[in-house]
Every structure is written in structure tokens, then in C-alpha cells.
Amino acid sequence: MKCSLIRDLLPLYVEGDCSPKTNKVVREHLDRCSECHKLYELINSPIDVKAITKPVTTETHTRSNEFWKRYYGRLILKGLGLFFVVYITVIKLMVLFKL
């Protein structure tokens, strides 16, 4: 059997979802093919999730919070500035046209 087909069957083989005949074919191929056997061992080995995930430190949160405070602070100031420019312009137009 071709390695590509065995590699497609490996997840099912590891989970025990193959028929007995398929299990036998996959096992025989794994005994003969070292590359597929390495892949099988890799799939079958447990994964240490703690080693993969990066712990979030309070320093990261602090820097992130400071960034967003500055960002929204600037955004609010720009909005207020724009509001007052429009407000003053409207007041001047009202006075100019005596509305």
C-alpha cells in the first residue's frame, strides 16, 4: 500500500476507528516503512499543552492597558476638538446670518 494512503489512515488507526483488516494492513506497512512509523509515533505521542502555550504576564497586560488608555484618550480628545470646531463654526454662521 502507498505511504500517502497510510498517512491518510493514520489518524483513524490511532483512534481505533479502522476495521480489523485495515488495522492489519496499516500495522504491516508501519513495520516495513520507517518514515510512516516515525509519523505514527509522532501522532501517537502525548502533547504537553503547557509547553506550547505562553503564559500571560501582568507586565504584558499592563503595557496593553496603557496602550489602549493612550489610544482612546487621544481618540476622545480628537473627537472633542472636532466637536468644538463644528460648534463654533455653527455659532459663527448663526451670528453672521442672524438666525
Results as ranks from 00 to 15, higher is better:
residue 93 L to Y: 10
residue 41 E to P: 01
residue 62 T to N: 03
residue 9 L to I: 04
residue 74 R to G: 08
residue 33 C to G: 03
residue 91 I to L: 10
residue 34 S to N: 02
residue 17 D to Y: 08
residue 95 V to L: 10
residue 33 C to P: 02
residue 79 G to V: 12
residue 63 R to W: 02
residue 16 G to A: 13
residue 48 D to R: 12
residue 83 F to T: 11
residue 55 P to T: 08
residue 34 S to P: 00
residue 34 S to V: 07
residue 8 D to F: 14
residue 50 K to H: 10
residue 38 K to A: 05
residue 22 T to P: 00
residue 98 K to V: 10
residue 54 K to R: 15
residue 70 R to D: 10
residue 51 A to D: 12
residue 55 P to V: 03
residue 87 Y to K: 00
residue 37 H to R: 11
residue 50 K to V: 01
residue 18 C to K: 03
residue 9 L to E: 09
residue 70 R to C: 04
residue 96 L to I: 06
residue 60 T to L: 14
residue 65 N to H: 04
residue 27 R to M: 04
residue 46 P to M: 04
residue 91 I to R: 02
residue 18 C to L: 15
residue 42 L to W: 06
residue 95 V to N: 06
residue 81 G to L: 11
residue 53 T to R: 10
residue 20 P to A: 08
residue 12 L to Q: 11
residue 86 V to M: 14
residue 2 K to Y: 13
residue 47 I to S: 11
residue 60 T to R: 12
residue 85 V to C: 06
residue 86 V to T: 09
residue 3 C to V: 04
residue 46 P to T: 14
residue 29 H to K: 08
residue 4 S to I: 03
residue 33 C to V: 03
residue 62 T to C: 04
residue 48 D to L: 13
residue 6 I to F: 00
residue 16 G to S: 06
residue 72 Y to S: 07
residue 51 A to F: 07
residue 63 R to M: 07
residue 9 L to K: 15
residue 23 N to Q: 07
residue 60 T to A: 13
residue 69 K to S: 02
residue 99 L to Q: 07
residue 42 L to A: 13
residue 58 T to R: 09
residue 10 L to R: 02
residue 52 I to V: 12
residue 27 R to W: 02
residue 17 D to G: 13
residue 37 H to Q: 09
residue 23 N to I: 00
residue 72 Y to K: 11
residue 88 I to A: 08
residue 53 T to P: 00
residue 13 Y to M: 03
residue 58 T to S: 05
residue 2 K to S: 10
residue 94 M to Q: 12
residue 71 Y to E: 06
residue 70 R to T: 07
residue 96 L to H: 15
residue 76 I to N: 11
residue 4 S to L: 09
residue 45 S to M: 12
residue 11 P to R: 00
residue 96 L to T: 08
residue 37 H to E: 10
residue 9 L to H: 03
residue 75 L to H: 06
residue 21 K to R: 12
residue 94 M to C: 14
residue 57 T to V: 05
residue 77 L to R: 12
residue 81 G to P: 00
